[in-house]
Design a protein around this nucleic acid. Sequence first.
DNA 1: CAAATAGTGTCTCTAAGACATTATACT
DNA 2: AGTATAATGTCTTAGAGACACTATTTG
Lengths: 222, 222
Amino acid sequence: MSSHPSIITTVDVVVLTIGPEGLSVLLNTRTREPFEGRLALPGGYVRADEDASADAAAFRVLRDKVGVSDVHIEQLATFSGAQRDPRGYSLTVAYVALVPLSAIPEGASLHPVREVRGLAFDHDTILGAAVDRLRSKSSYSSAPAALLEKPFTLPELYAAYADVLGVSPDPSSFRRKVLAVGAITPSGEKRGSGGRGKGRAAETYVLPRGEVRTFDITFKSR
Amino acid sequence: MSSHPSIITTVDVVVLTIGPEGLSVLLNTRTREPFEGRLALPGGYVRADEDASADAAAFRVLRDKVGVSDVHIEQLATFSGAQRDPRGYSLTVAYVALVPLSAIPEGASLHPVREVRGLAFDHDTILGAAVDRLRSKSSYSSAPAALLEKPFTLPELYAAYADVLGVSPDPSSFRRKVLAVGAITPSGEKRGSGGRGKGRAAETYVLPRGEVRTFDITFKSR
DNA sequence: CAAATAGTGTCTCTAAGACATTATACT
DNA sequence: AGTATAATGTCTTAGAGACACTATTTG
């Protein structure tokens, strides 16, 4: 009954952040076949004797192969079939992690998502699904805040939304909405933003209880 | 390299519809161990030699074990671990199908989701996730229309939203919104609703191009 | 003080909620 | 005719977009 052809079972993690060139993804260069030398999402086998679940395997991969821990990861979707891995029939459970730039170790290779193409396996598809998911969640939650350093300023959050969604809503409406709904809470401190050392310092905020909140936000494109 | 302990890989499908008692799920009684005699979601092994992918396996299960085809199914999430199946480490890719009552074969066992508890494996969890997903999608799309016979009337659609979301928005606002946004298109015919054979006949509608549309809908609870 | 960025106030207009009113079907 | 249900009209009000204006920081 369990004598079916075996299925290669893996996890892959799409680590997204906002880097100097906007929304970016962490990629590794494959050191062995298949696709040796090609860029790929960090991933690994699900080890039945070690991982309590696929979710746990994703955490392990993130910790051991990327050096990132203490981040929120979320299941994205599962991709499977005979074609996606030349070694045979395979199934991968894909995850998304939204992290601030500072959580990514030195030397990791970050790539602006716009420029990424030609990844190993079906990782282009997986990355596309991850970005779609982020865009979708951004339109009704404070998800982009997870991409920022804590605490963050309101202009920074605005920029994150604008970058992810590709729209530029009215800044004052944005401010009103986000504050009215309690999606972020003031941390009491102030900080110069932008980095250019000019202009008024901005209030900083954190996510209440560290959690992304959902709310209704409907930005028209401009 | 591929000498890892093997993982039982399956798919499970949550078939939802609106039956006489509201939102309901199609369940089968298990005919063998484990959980023999218990209710469970229809499911089956992913057969590497037969199914092009897990998605294809879900279609096959739906067709062969349930007798339903030509429906839209959507991946929900993947559940895995050593505990969920007594036979060993397992992984299941769960799917949701939203179907009209007429698409369900005679003799299938439908159960109002409110009353379902004690399913085999972790199927209570999976069902819960499916219902959450449906509720979530209902708040920004015409998803509940997929649960209705085609063509459907506007009052029927309203009732579907009310049942799924558990709220009763103003009927006239609902009508304006849904029509203004083009989520449904008139089919030209009329039909008596309710079944009690009373009252004015209602215009019937279909989904444009048969597709669920997303739009902004924000119902306050009442 | 000038420049740059952060934040507020106010006006307009759209659209949701409430609810009264009209229309159409059946017995 | 009477009743039940479908559909429309209208009023009020909350909130998004637009944009002018004020505040605070650095050079």
